[in-house]
Amino acid sequence: MGSWKTPEDLKYTRNDEWLRIEGNVGTMGLTDYAQDQLNDIVYVDLPDKGDTLKKGTSFCAVESVKAASDIYAPVSGKITEVNQALEDEPELINSDPYGKGWVVKFEIADPGEAAELLDAAAYAEYCNSRE
């Protein structure tokens, strides 16, 4: 059994993104499991504010020393804020994946899409199943 954090109040994807929903505003990032697998993250290729997100489609990428990984939109929407801190400190994703390591905030297009996402318990089980 792994010991990755999976906060209760978040929704999760099978691509290892998390989503926090506050009204019609979504905040998302990479999960603790994802950052652990990637190891030292050295670069985040951030998207632009105003970019459109399409559920399940890649919109930016993170790089560690040995791997690169796409980040997929958990639900559709339009980016309203990008975490510029990651430009200089990409390691925030490693140290605080659910806090300072958030990637984008966006306006959720269809809240109904979030229903298909995993809850914390299901996601934790999914992580363990891959070990």
Binding site: A61, E63, S64, V65, K66, A68
Partner: peptide
Amino acid sequence: RPREQDIRREK
């Protein structure tokens, strides 16, 4: 290195 073909493959 991660941008290279042997790691990033079709991406």
